[in-house]
Design a protein around this nucleic acid. Sequence first.
DNA 1: AGTTATTATCGAAACGTTTCGATGTCATAG
DNA 2: CTATGACATCGAAACGTTTCGATAATAACT
Lengths: 356, 356
Amino acid sequence: MGKITIKDIARMAGVSVSTVSLVLSGKGYVSDITRTKVEKVIEKYNYHPRQSARRLPSKLTGNIGFIISDLHLYGNEVFYSRVLLGAELEARKRDYYVLLATIGQSFAPAKDTPRFIRSHDVDGIIIAGGVPYELIECVHELTIPYVLVDFHHPLIPSNLVLIENYTGAYQAVRHLIDHGYERIAFVGGSFYHSSIKERFQGYQAALNEAGLGAISEDQSLHILVDEETSDQIGYSGICTMIDQSIDFDAVVCANDTTAIGCLQALQQRTLHVPGDVALVGFDDIRHAVETEPTLTTVHVPKLEMGQQAMRLIFDLLDHPRTGQQTRMIHTELIVRESTATQVKQTEYARERPTIA
Amino acid sequence: MGKITIKDIARMAGVSVSTVSLVLSGKGYVSDITRTKVEKVIEKYNYHPRQSARRLPSKLTGNIGFIISDLHLYGNEVFYSRVLLGAELEARKRDYYVLLATIGQSFAPAKDTPRFIRSHDVDGIIIAGGVPYELIECVHELTIPYVLVDFHHPLIPSNLVLIENYTGAYQAVRHLIDHGYERIAFVGGSFYHSSIKERFQGYQAALNEAGLGAISEDQSLHILVDEETSDQIGYSGICTMIDQSIDFDAVVCANDTTAIGCLQALQQRTLHVPGDVALVGFDDIRHAVETEPTLTTVHVPKLEMGQQAMRLIFDLLDHPRTGQQTRMIHTELIVRESTATQVKQTEYARERPTIA
DNA sequence: AGTTATTATCGAAACGTTTCGATGTCATAG
DNA sequence: CTATGACATCGAAACGTTTCGATAATAACT
């Protein structure tokens, strides 16, 4: 059974190949009679045009490359997997495919360049999360549009999809202050990832504005380790502060994973959350509702980030002369048990998978 | 800058298009002089043939579809993300791309069929983890090869990549028995996923063989909830057993996620692991080394599973007349703190990301 | 010297689409 | 009655490769 082609359909419908193509694309003029006739044959043989043939005459490939650090995709966080899903959902609408490439921590342009770039197999590129700057520089040289999600290069202007980290952290700290907490610590990883830095700045701003400038400048309350943000950092951060008899009544974390590390350390040192210490995360990963107590955190709509990134790519494809764009994704504080003593009740993650 | 084509290369090297193609593919006869000349031009202009054009004459697309339940990909487990990475690594070697599709818990053939199947855009399909049987039935109807990873249909014979669940669980239980544990419980989820059933059977076999048949048949020691295996099941399973005053000194879990749920419950009820109760997981997910205590578990090489699946697809593509194949992936017991009281030391996950 | 292999190169067809321009048909307006 | 324009259909070129068969030159046999 050799695959059915447009020629077969044309023959069986008694029309020319071009007419079938016209029906397929909905362009040009086709009479209703002919259209129905052709559609019936297409339906009957379950014909679908072959992409590779379809893409040849047009200069496009119908693919978008999605690049992510292996560390981000295969670490504990499901964060970027959901961004990927969002991108895929959006791509689907335009019949585009997403090609995935992971990239290590170091980057050598010749060797590590994702092959879909070398083979001209994508019409656009999405880069999610922190990656080596060299990669961005390399992609910037290309003639195809690209979008950075939750990251950016300090010098190169790019199309961006960013989280409102500053506001999110600000609101989290504000919430703590409103509930009477004062000695609020911050635990996080490397500022290489600008999101972390912005969260820290939002934390400082809220303190300053509440007249707690002393706290915002008290370095003994700031655990800022220069490595990838992780639960390890949270765990050891808390241990350090306790061992050094630092006085704190709340902890704001760079992300949920860190917060979970903090939680473990606090519980191991028999400190009660939120009784002795309140705890706030960031991201609202699924795990945040599975801890005991559940975690107050700043919700980040991951799916939406992926969708926005893909839409931005399409916009750039449709309007090549557009300038650089930045799209902000807004966040929302989700108050759970780790900052408030309430009646416990089963709660589910805010973001349910969208099936399509 | 219109893209460079094979024609441009031919012109600049002063040879025919076919000769350039010959150089590219390494087939046929080309003199060393010509070859070097052509290669130099290719190098100079950084020419790479366009896939869509390349794939047209051949009947193949150069893509492999990877289907996974959204629940598996976006749940807490990183398990199948690593299988995907393994598949991608292997695909890369043959210049194939992996197209990802997620699928919900229910499946309606017309609506939910991944679009790369409808559009004939893949040469083969890998299905990872539990999916609705209808999907397998649908894929089975197709004329392209497909491989099931860590799952199978009870009636349809397929090409399979399976884990040695039985042996793995057997060894885990054996290990517990050897260390004097006797009242060994089993906690797990639905048998819809055959891996879970096999693990349970391995558990029973080890007990029976050690003359502990009474335990292997004691249903009060078997928490078998008919839903997706999760940490919730572990948590509530332990609570149930304790509340009913069931006597147990060890727990074998259907997977690590469940074990982590168990651990939380045990610790909350102030039972010491492994002092009061020993705990064994399955899968060796990254999280297993981040718990306190670290988790004894059965290591499953996830990357290798993906690689094997992709290699199997290629084998089937190369030798179309081959019969159904099943490839077993072997497991290994990793003893950590949750079953033995040892000096604690930092340990890293066994499976480091392979960067390529 | 003549036949046959082997090596080297090339022209042209083929792959399955889209799209451009040509050719008609048929109303409607002048 | 003829010009115009909208509608309908089609043939053929084009997209960038691979591959088949042709041609030719050289080498290796009788």
